[in-house]
Amino acid sequence: MKNSIRIERAIKNITQQELAEKIGVSRQTINAIESNKYVPSTVLALKMARLFQKKVDEIFILEETD
């Protein structure tokens, strides 16, 4: 699974730290998700989608290997 959080962040012009604070997680978590090392829970994915005003599957995209 890949995600477009880094791009969405750039559009909204917020840092990892700011995004982390807005959805109540640590900065490491955002970093781990962006670098595809950690797959977030549904709750966290929904929170991000709400913040970016996108659908979850517009931010998180399944890959062939999934």
């Binding site: 109540g24 997680v25 640590s26 978590t29 781990a32 998700i33 977030p40 829970s41």
Partner: peptide, 11 residues
């Protein structure tokens, strides 16, 4: 607990 103990830290 870490300062921000979230799901990734728990993981």
């Amino acid at each position: 607990r870490e300062k921000t103990e979230d799901e990734y830290i728990a993981h």
